Simulated assay, not measured.
Amino acid sequence: MSGRLQNTTFFPPVETALADPNGLLAMGGDLSVERLLDAYRHGIFPWFNPGEPILWWSPDPRMVLVPGEIRVTRSLAKRIRNGGFEVRADTAFVDVMRACAAPRARARGTWISPAMVAAYNHLHQAGYAHSVETWHDNVLVGGLYGVAIGRMFYGESMFSREPDTSKVALVRLAHQLQRWDFGLIDCQMETAHLASLGARTLPRAAFSARLAELVNLSNRPGPWCFDASD
């Protein structure tokens, strides 16, 4: 790790990130819109517990999902068809973040602090951060949020209040991003859950090379509005 950031300093090269813990690159700095956009453009994201310094990460390998490769099982497809869900974008961003921050079974606390909610809401207001929401009978029951730069989407967190409702949001997002010619959804860290949906790992060097192409394509600023049919 290359050390502590000051509010005016740039990030060190991602190749200098630690192997243990995997991807820890730097600490300090701030959560300004400018800092966050610079981080995401280089494949770096903040992840830290409340009360800790801001920690910045670039893990190797990187879990990614190509939008056209999302895997939809028969049971999930049936749930999407028959569940009575409506999927919306960018209509309840702060509500989605707060739902993602809520305590979960077998989890101790949350890294999505009020400061993080405020910082990403500023990104949302600037047109870069987005929520995808699953609604049932006009009640928010699942969803996710993330950041989009160019034709790259960085997934941050998901939540479900009913079975599969975060998956419903992710499938809808992936299909829409494919239509919009997005190249990757960044899933950050490897999990069996994401692998079951079609995500796979890329070496950091390959991820960075693809990222450099995608972030320099034209932006699709928010608020987003998804196509009427899926």
Rank of each mutant, 00 (worst) to 15 (best):
N7D: 15
N7H: 15
E15N: 09
A19S: 14
D20L: 12
L24Q: 11
L24T: 06
L25T: 02
A26Q: 06
A26R: 03
G29Q: 04
G29C: 03
D30K: 10
L31I: 07
S32K: 11
S32Q: 07
S32M: 12
R35C: 07
L36V: 09
L36K: 04
L37V: 07
L37Y: 05
D38W: 01
A39E: 05
Y40E: 08
R41D: 05
H42I: 00
I44A: 07
P46K: 09
N49C: 13
P50H: 11
E52F: 13
P53K: 08
W56L: 08
W56D: 10
W56F: 11
W56P: 07
W57Q: 10
P59T: 08
V64T: 10
L65C: 12
G68K: 13
I70R: 02
I70Q: 00
I70P: 01
R74G: 15
S75W: 05
N82Y: 12
G84M: 14
R88S: 04
A89V: 00
T91L: 09
F93E: 03
V94Y: 07
V96K: 03
M97V: 09
R98P: 08
R98D: 13
R98T: 13
C100T: 05
A102F: 10
P103C: 13
R104S: 12
A105E: 14
R106Q: 15
R108M: 12
G109K: 11
G109M: 15
I112C: 06
M116A: 03
N121L: 05
H122L: 10
H124K: 07
A126C: 05
A126D: 01
G127F: 03
G127P: 05
Y128A: 04
S131D: 04
V132I: 15
E133M: 00
W135T: 00
W135R: 00
V139P: 00
V141T: 04
G142C: 06
G142P: 01
V147R: 02
V147I: 15
A148M: 03
A148Q: 02
A148C: 02
I149L: 11
I149N: 02
M158I: 07
S160R: 02
S160V: 03
R161V: 01
E162I: 03
D164L: 06
V168C: 01
L177G: 01
L177C: 08
R179N: 12
D181R: 06
G183K: 10
M189E: 12
A192P: 02
L194I: 11
A195T: 10
A195N: 12
S196A: 15
L197N: 06
G198D: 08
L202D: 01
L202F: 14
L202A: 06
A206D: 14
A206G: 06
S208Q: 15
L214H: 05
L214W: 09
V215K: 05
N219T: 01
N219S: 07
P221V: 01
G222E: 02
C225L: 11
A228E: 13
S229Q: 11
